[in-house]
């Protein structure tokens, strides 16, 4: 996580540390993290080597039908 923060120019306040750094596709060295909307905007503006931001929609159980 520290390495990812340094690489992206983010602080610990910009990310969800409890969520951590998640390996998305270990074969391709792809990782994900949960960041604040402000951090996402900053990353996009500074053109860092990353993809996203991606939506993080709410998910709910499919039952019982209401």
């Amino acid at each position: 996580m520290d390495l990812a923060l340094r690489k992206l120019g983010l602080t610990k306040q910009d990310v969800d540390l409890g969520y951590g750094l998640i390996p998305l596709d270990p074969d391709k060295g792809s990782y994900g993290m949960r960041v604040t909307p402000e951090a996402a905007a900053k990353l996009a503006a500074e053109g860092h080597d990353f993809e996203g931001p991606w939506s993080d929609p709410r998910i709910e159980p499919f039952g019982p039908p209401r």
Binding site: Y19, L24, D56, P57, R58, E60, P61
Partner: peptide, 8 residues
């Protein structure tokens, strides 16, 4: 409910 990132 949860967030999709939890499923990730």
């Amino acid at each position: 409910d949860g967030l999709l990132s939890d499923a990730v």
